[in-house]
Design a protein around this nucleic acid. Structure first.
Length: 469
RNA sequence: GGCGGUAUAGCCAAGUGGUAAGGCAGAGGUCUGCAAAACCUUCAUCGUCGGUUCGAAUCCGAUUACCGCCUCCA
């Protein structure tokens, strides 16, 4: 039975989707004015893992994640780079798709862009004004936060105790137009020469929060199962989404709110963020680190907890991943001399491990415990692979289970030993030498192959080889 | 000021009342012509102080340090 930690109630709850076989989830995507950094990647990976586990459990998942392709930062960046907002957005959306594909994130069912939904956004804002939840002020439109009685519920904030300007990002001109400092923008009027769309309130563009309300309800319905994002979005972004959506529809916006923890960096575990400038982009990191290592690294900590990005931790992940790859390859190697049949005792143990894996993942996607079970299975496989007599059905069972378990974490295991006649010829020659106890020649061949990145390993069933990455 | 998070071995990290999972690194061993891979053994009393309890990393109180959010952030 799957349990998830719901930010709305601050506790783990039994997960029950609206439709028993389908999960509708919306995850707040990036503002596309730069390459994604590994903090963004963590969010993408966390929710991809959640999605894949839901699929592992048999759900069909409709996964919608937006691109914020118009806002202040995009306008600023486009000006600085002497380009247009749409061109800049296109470029970084392409980069996003490339980077997320590299770390094996399943493509979203739909990646809507804010600018593709302007008419719907305008309609949404109009409806909020008609209901008295929003007001126009000099070309801007603001939401009356205090009028929504649950305002502050998600982030456990008392509206009277919100400190105006505590984040030091207050816009004085905007503050003047608001009835109440906690009100937030639904529509912003355009400054001269800024990208804009016509609206009943003049030329302008959507506020940040409104796009997610519009796209979530448009593509997934008024009430969805899961809404996700980083912890920094709890307030104000998600709080505002709830206020807007529920004020308009009168229905609950999302049943479960899931938030991933930050990637931290440095000795003081500071949050990695674009505004602090202490970020590493995925684009750069995968130039020197295999993308699957980055991906596996993210699985080493439960998604809600902070994860520290260091080279040591990355190396650790690389080591562990290699251990799993080796187990997989070594088992695959035994397939060639395995006999037909199954070993019921071993298969019983495999099912036990699988059951514990599911228990772990059912507990709010506890990847660390899930991976411990993967190590258990790899160990069982290693022990089995060293038996003199092995059975094909059982090996295939272990291989298949290993693959499925790690696929949830976005890792694809495959045998590292492929057909290669050149290598096989040398292996045969070395075997001859060893038979004649010509170890000098034998070791010479091993060294020669090692120089080409091929490692030879002698086993009772023959010599197997693998490539050293 | 309000709200929230984190603190477990050299490192990473599970564990919410029953006497510290797992991985990496280290040490010792088995296997091997030598290796490699693998396997086996070994390696902590849980930030600090106090309390509750037969029993606490786990509950309560206090305290320290670090991090985050409070309308730019995944």
């Amino acid at each position: 039975m799957l349990k998830v930690f719901n930010t709305l109630t601050r506790q783990k709850e039994i997960f029950k989707s609206i439709n028993p076989n389908v999960v509708n989830m919306y995850v707040c995507g990036p503002t596309v004015y730069n390459y994604i950094h590994i903090g963004n990647a963590r969010s993408a990976i966390a929710f991809d893992t959640i999605r894949r586990y839901l699929e592992y459990k048999g759900y069909k998942v409709n996964y919608v994640s937006n691109f914020t392709d118009v806002d202040d930062k995009l306008i600023k960046a486009a000006n600085e780079q002497h380009t247009t907002v749409p061109e800049l957005a296109d470029r970084y959306i392409a980069a996003f798709k490339e980077d997320t594909a590299a770390i094996n994130i399943e493509p979203a069912t739909k990646n809507p862009r804010a600018t593709e939904n302007i008419p719907e956004i305008i309609e949404f804002v109009k409806a909020l004004i008609e209901k008295g939840f929003a007001y126009e002020a000099d070309g801007d439109v603001y939401f009356r936060a205090r009028k929504f009685k649950h305002y502050g519920q998600l982030s456990d904030q008392n509206v009277d105790e919100l400190e105006v300007g505590a984040s030091e990002h207050t816009d004085e001109a905007e503050l003047e137009k608001k009835e109440d400092p906690i009100d937030f923008a639904l529509w912003k009027s355009a400054k001269p020469d800024e990208i804009s769309w016509e609206s009943p309130w003049g030329a302008g563009r959507p506020g940040w929060h409104i796009e997610c309300s519009v796209m979530s309800t448009k593509y997934l319905g008024d009430t969805i199962d899961i809404h996700g994002g980083g912890q920094d979005l709890e307030f104000p972004h998600h709080e505002n989404e709830i206020a807007q959506s529920e004020s308009k529809t009168g229905k609950k916006f999302a049943n479960y709110w899931l938030h991933n923890g930050f990637v931290t960096v440095g000795d003081d575990n500071q949050k990695m963020s674009k505004s602090l400038g202490n970020f590493v982009t995925v684009h750069d990191i995968i130039k020197k680190t295999p993308p699957e290592v980055l991906r596996f690294f993210m699985a080493t900590t439960q998604y809600r907890r902070p994860i520290q990005y260091t080279q040591d931790n990355l190396d650790d992940a690389a080591n562990n991943l290699k251990h799993l790859q080796t187990a997989f390859s070594n088992l695959t190697y035994r397939l060639k001399d395995a006999e037909d049949g199954n070993d019921p005792k071993i298969e019983q143990e495999i099912r036990q491990i699988q059951s514990e894996y599911i228990d772990a993942m059912d507990d709010d996607f506890n990847a660390q415990n899930g991976i411990s079970e993967v190590y258990e299975l790899a160990k069982l496989g290693n022990i089995y692979a060293e038996r003199g007599l092995v059975e094909k059905g059982t090996i295939e069972f272990i291989l298949s289970e290993l693959q499925q378990m790690v696929l949830v974490f976005g890792i694809q295991l495959q045998s590292t030993q492929l057909e290669d006649d050149g290598i096989q010829t040398l292996i045969d020659e070395r075997l001859e030498a060893r038979k004649n106890r010509d170890f000098a020649r034998s070791d010479e061949i091993r060294e020669q192959l090692k120089a080409q990145g091929v490692i030879l390993e002698d086993t009772p069933q023959g010599t197997r080889w693998r490539r050293e990455e």
